[in-house]
Simulated scan of single mutants.
Amino acid sequence: MSSSISVEVSGLTMSYGTTKVLHGVDFTIARGEVLVLLGPNGAGKTTTIEILEGFRLPSAGTVRVLGEDPAKADELWRSRIGVVLQSWRDHGRWRVRDLLDHLAAFYRPYATRAGGPPRPPYPTDELIEMVGLGEHRRAKVATLSGGQRRRLDVAIGIVGRPELLFLDEPTAGFDPAARRDFHDLVHRLSDLQDTTILLTTHDLDEAEKLADRILILHHGRIAADGTADALARQVAGTAEVRWSQDGQRHVHATDDATGFVRDLFAQERMDRGRVEDLEVRRPSLESTYLSMVADERPSLEVVR
């Protein structure tokens, strides 16, 4: 496995009894990449993530995460990953700073990792500021609001300065300001700390803002693989150009919006009427996603 690849999955298959939920899934995640995994309930997202985290054994296929088989990896390997679950239980009597300091102690023996520079756990006070809990460092966990509790979940997931971070619906319960702050944090982790991130979300706007690349799972298969713009162009259809000319409103669908607009202004220069109120509406990630998951066929073409 190349050092430039954090995750490599080939022929991943998973069955529960007679029900097959993953059908030969293949993908890779480059080091430092932010990959967003989308898909409706039952598409196989949770199963895929649990296999990559080493919590579930696949029925068939090959999985390499940070160069190891998750099913056989040791504690050193586990110290290199971070996990933010949708929810988890703990002792509400812990104070925020004490809890994070306690958890950081488990990572310190593994700060020096073969094949790369040391990655000691974040200093507790720095970590608390990173996730926006500076005013609550002495608060008991039981007194935190839902959004504050979610910020603590994120802090717990990244306390060990992971090389690979799994985020499962990380902004559930966040208000708009907290969500924006979290998005900034994800970008900092990826850009400055060289952290690879695999994120699942049902928020398509969030996926579009965060993802370097998007995978859409549907019926246990990869239905699409690409950037948000690439998926919208190749899957959702044509762009729509709207404009006014000589007092009349016009709408035109085209596969080449740039070329059409160029021709439109060329006509304007030939005194065919001034072009006003020009608007180009391109396919959105939302329209792409909905068009794909509304199709109930067992497989869809992979978009590269």
Rank of each mutant, 00 (worst) to 15 (best):
T46L: 01
Y107M: 01
V293F: 02
D194R: 07
V261Y: 12
E206V: 04
A104H: 11
E296W: 03
D205W: 04
K45S: 02
L278R: 00
L165E: 06
R179C: 14
R282C: 00
L164K: 14
Y16C: 10
V186P: 06
V84L: 06
E129F: 02
E276I: 00
I197H: 11
G259F: 03
V96G: 13
P170C: 05
Q267M: 13
A105C: 02
A111W: 02
A139G: 05
G259T: 01
M292R: 03
V280P: 01
D212A: 03
L144N: 11
H252S: 12
L217E: 13
T62P: 05
G61C: 06
T143Q: 14
R213P: 07
T200H: 04
V63G: 13
E33L: 09
T195A: 11
V7S: 08
I214G: 07
G115Y: 02
A155F: 12
L210C: 06
R180W: 03
G61L: 05
I214M: 09
S2T: 13
G82K: 07
R56Y: 06
Q234A: 13
D74F: 07
L37M: 03
K45Q: 03
I214F: 09
A253F: 08
L103P: 03
W94P: 14
T13E: 15
S287I: 00
R281I: 08
I216N: 11
D295H: 06
R78I: 05
D69I: 00
D229R: 13
R149V: 02
L278F: 06
E129N: 15
E50G: 02
A71D: 05
R93G: 01
V154H: 10
Y110M: 01
L38Y: 01
L290W: 03
G157V: 09
R137V: 02
E268K: 00
E50C: 00
